[in-house]
């Protein structure tokens, strides 16, 4: 016989070959056969054993990768804090379609204080970067600003727009969308914006940040930098 307290320390012996001391295996198995708690623990150990074999070894990151990550991330943190966007809220691009169109104006008016303070996120998700804008990433949070629907967008790895171009934020669908305004990264490729959401755009199915010529044309180029995965 083997006591429970001793048995529970030896349960791995039933999983790993060569772990059990001679003569103890039979007594351990006999205990487990009548002990529900130990049977459950053995089940977990079996699962660990399976996962260890399936998952394979843990790779060691190369020194080069470690240097890249630590240097890039920490160097970025030591740069001056990014400036807020909305430095140039000129043309509001409104797409042609639907009820979403007219609601945009109210959103822009609310933006004019230029501050994202007070934004309260409810949900957050990563934005997908375009293959054509390698390194561009972003996050989208949906929540409220002073009690009204709003979104917060944060971009990383996005170079500043070329001369005569701007980056536009759109919500809606590919067929019917509104432009919420422009977003402008700082020299570190970082941008952050809190945008009031027009009533007609609440629950929007998709979001894009696109590269657009700064010509007031309400059409979009579809040269997207990041987009939501919805």
């Amino acid at each position: 016989m083997i006591e429970h307290d001793e048995a529970r320390l030896l349960l791995a012996d039933l999983i790993v070959p060569g772990l059990s001391d001679p003569g103890r295996g039979a007594a351990l198995r006999a205990h487990v056969a009548v002990c529900g708690s130990c049977r459950q623990d053995v089940g977990e150990l079996q699962r660990i054993d399976e996962i260890m074999r399936e998952a394979g070894p843990i790779p060691e990151p190369s020194a080069d990768l470690e240097a890249r990550v630590l240097d890039a991330v920490i160097a970025a943190a030591r740069r001056p804090a990014p400036t807020r966007l909305w430095s140039n809220l000129t043309a509001l691009r409104v797409a042609a379609a639907g009820a979403l169109t007219l609601a945009a104006t109210a959103g822009v008016a609310a933006l004019m204080d230029g501050s994202g303070g007070g934004f309260r996120p409810d949900t957050s998700k990563a934005l997908a970067g375009s293959p054509d804008w390698r390194g561009a990433t972003g996050t989208l949070a949906v929540g409220t600003l002073r009690g009204s629907p709003a979104i917060r967008i944060e971009l990383q790895g996005v170079p500043g727009p070329a001369t005569g171009a701007t980056y536009q934020v759109w919500v809606g669908t590919r067929e019917a969308r509104i432009a919420l305004g422009m977003i402008e990264p700082d020299s570190a490729g970082h941008a952050e914006a809190v945008l009031p959401l027009p009533t007609g755009a609440v629950g929007f199915p998709g979001l894009w940040v696109t590269n657009e010529p700064d010509d007031g044309d309400p059409a979009w180029t579809r040269d997207w930098i990041v987009r939501s995965t919805a």
Binding site: L9, L10, L11, A12, D13, I15, V16, L19, D41, E44, L45, R47, I48, D49, M52
Partner: peptide, 12 residues
């Protein structure tokens, strides 16, 4: 080995 496996089981 036994102690390590017990710790890993807790991770589940």
């Amino acid at each position: 080995t036994r102690n390590a496996l017990a710790l890993l089981a807790r991770s589940l």
